[in-house]
């Protein structure tokens, strides 16, 4: 039973990973990544790491990938197909592949894969439960845990600052006057008067700004 589940999940994970890079439509790439993450969660379940599996689904498949899908379907989705990169990009990619291969080769040759003949660590009751993970995070791994939370806080503050700068404001400014964003319309761009065939009232630019300001 667990062998079948393992092979289904493993094939799903590898197929998803291949799909992310092979599919030309970015929307389907993101969906392939979702499939990959769900397969990984199934593999975690096989290792009796229930909490890690749930966190994987809630955080990565649920929140992060939805945001990816959000962005891709707004700005990239369907219409634009990804094209193969140029020569420099391919050179960089080849370099990365070589580096990864060397790293894996060192790891395999260094350890000699001795553990693969043994049965692995025995199962301890309570392993992988939220209680044990919480205990490990607050005792053994307290420092990395706190540093990671600080890092995430910095990232969140940075995102807020960047978003405000993009909108044309800096921190500490008064809220923007909304009427500043209403640009005077140029003529013959689909006003209601043109649509009903009425005469254009004036050849100068209209000034709806004054009414809105009150």
């Amino acid at each position: 039973m667990s062998t079948i589940v393992f092979f289904v999940a493993a094939i799903g994970a590898i197929a998803g990973a291949i799909g992310v890079v092979a599919l030309r439509n970015p929307f389907y790439s993101v969906l392939a990544l979702v499939g990959h993450l769900l397969s990984l969660a199934a593999l975690f379940l096989l290792l009796r790491a229930e909490f890690v599996a749930a966190a994987q689904v809630v955080v990565y498949a649920g929140a992060v990938m939805v945001l990816y899908l959000f962005v891709v379907s707004y700005i990239g989705g369907g219409a634009t197909q990804l094209t193969p990169g140029g020569a420099p990009l391919r050179a960089v990619a080849g370099g990365a592949v070589l580096a990864l291969f060397a790293e894996l080769a060192i790891a395999v040759l260094g350890s000699g894969l001795k553990a693969i003949d043994s049965d692995g660590a025995p199962y301890v009751p309570g392993f992988g439960t939220p209680a044990q993970i919480g205990e490990a995070l607050l005792t053994k791994f307290l420092f990395p845990f706190e540093v990671a939370s600080l890092l995430l806080l910095v990232a969140a503050v940075g995102a807020v600052v960047l978003a405000r700068r993009r909108a044309g404001t800096t921190l500490g400014d008064e809220p923007e006057d909304a009427t500043r964003w209403i640009t005077p319309r140029s003529l013959f761009t689909g006003t209601m008067a043109e649509a009903v065939g009425g005469p254009h009232r004036a050849q100068t630019e209209p000034e709806p700004v004054e009414e809105l300001r009150s």
């Binding site: 769900l38 599996a53 749930a54 966190a55 689904v57 939220p130």
Partner: peptide, 10 residues
């Protein structure tokens, strides 16, 4: 309850 949250995330 994380089980339910995982599936509502999907």
């Amino acid at each position: 309850v994380l089980f339910a949250f995982a599936f509502s995330a999907i």
